[in-house]
Amino acid sequence: MIVEVAVLQVKNGQEALFESDFILASQYISSISGYLSHSLLKCMEQENKYILVANWEKLEDHIIGFRQSPQYVLWKELLHHYYDPFPIVEHYQGVNLT
Rank of each mutant, 00 (worst) to 15 (best):
Val5Met: 10
Val7His: 12
Val7Leu: 00
Val7Gln: 08
Gln9Tyr: 14
Val10Asn: 08
Val10Phe: 00
Asn12Tyr: 03
Gly13Asp: 01
Gln14Phe: 00
Gln14Asn: 04
Ala16Tyr: 01
Asp21Pro: 06
Phe22Ser: 04
Ser26Asp: 03
Ser26Ala: 09
Gln27Ala: 09
Gln27Pro: 00
Gln27Phe: 02
Tyr28Cys: 05
Ile29Tyr: 09
Ile29Ser: 07
Ile29Trp: 01
Ile29Lys: 02
Ser30Phe: 00
Ser31Trp: 12
Ile32Lys: 01
Ser33Ala: 14
Tyr35Asp: 11
Ser37Asn: 12
His38Gln: 12
Leu40Thr: 04
Cys43Met: 11
Met44Ala: 12
Glu45Gly: 15
Gln46Thr: 14
Asn48Pro: 12
Tyr50His: 10
Tyr50Thr: 15
Ile51Asn: 05
Ile51Arg: 08
Leu52His: 01
Leu52Lys: 00
Ala54Thr: 10
Lys58Asp: 05
Lys58Thr: 08
Leu59Asn: 11
Leu59Phe: 08
Glu60Ser: 13
Asp61Leu: 07
Asp61Val: 03
Asp61Phe: 05
Ile63Asp: 10
Arg67Gly: 13
Tyr72Leu: 11
Val73Lys: 00
Leu74Asn: 14
Trp75Ser: 07
Trp75Gln: 08
Lys76Leu: 06
Leu78Lys: 13
Leu78Val: 06
His80Arg: 13
His81Cys: 03
His81Asn: 04
His81Glu: 04
Phe86Asp: 03
Phe86Lys: 06
Phe86Ile: 03
Pro87Arg: 01
Glu90Lys: 08
His91Thr: 03
Gln93Ala: 12
Gln93Lys: 13
Gly94Asp: 03
Gly94Ala: 00
Val95Leu: 09
